[in-house]
Amino acid sequence: MLKGVFYKEYIKTRRTLLWMLLVLIGATFALFLFVNHEIEVKQVSFFWFQQMVSNNLFFVWMLPVFPLMAAIFGVVQFLPETIGRRFRLSLFMPENELVISFSMLGFGLLALTLLFTLQFVVFAVLFSGIITLIWLLAAAKVFVCFWLFSFATYLLIVLIFIAQKTTYRMVLAVTALVQSSILFIKPQLNIFDCLIPYAAILVMLLFFSTSFFIHHYKTGSYEL
């Protein structure tokens, strides 16, 4: 069963996944070239001083890419389900509809995690000559925090597609905007640590909220 759902989701998103990976790795390379140029011009000591003391993180500009990618992935995965109400086709497969929908979301979260992890590996390899492992681990927390918020964005986008009422869609869109705005309060190293549990709770709540929308999808939203 899981194989079937994952197969369908893979077919739907394989091209998007590929170009997303290319964009993420491309952006990481661009960042690497930019940092190298900065180091050449300003010297490595100044670069470090910026990172350590001024908290002027060099990778900050690429962080919004994660929620953006997650939102696009959500659209690519669930727009085809919405056209012609094809979601009925997916849900009527011989399996519990909640298991089916949770598996679809599971695929999305797994694919995004894989994508983001690959990006981080490339990031770590490229910057291993400039930053140390300890610093990289501290930076990883900022990445993880953005990943979690990206997952929340993805889930909110998916819920917008599953929700059958305009009111729900509007409420979800506002929620997505509000939750994403939290990320841009002050993107600095270390200060995101305490946001990780919050983001994790948000992702969990949104994941299980799906069952409410699936229930609503089935109980009366279907109009002739």
């Binding site: 069963m1 194989k3 079937g4 197969y7 369908k8 077919i11 739907k12 085809p80 056209i83 012609g84 109400r85 094809r86 009925r88 086709l89 009527f92 497969m93 011989p94 399996e95």
Partner: peptide, 29 residues
């Protein structure tokens, strides 16, 4: 549900799949 086959109005199918893929997908259930 495994004993029931449903044809939705308008011959609804997953349009983004090929003939082989749609068979592979349905087969798994």
């Amino acid at each position: 549900r495994r004993r029931i086959g449903v044809l939705f109005e308008g011959h609804l199918l997953h349009n983004y799949m090929t003939l082989k893929e749609v068979a592979n997908y349905t087969k798994s259930f």
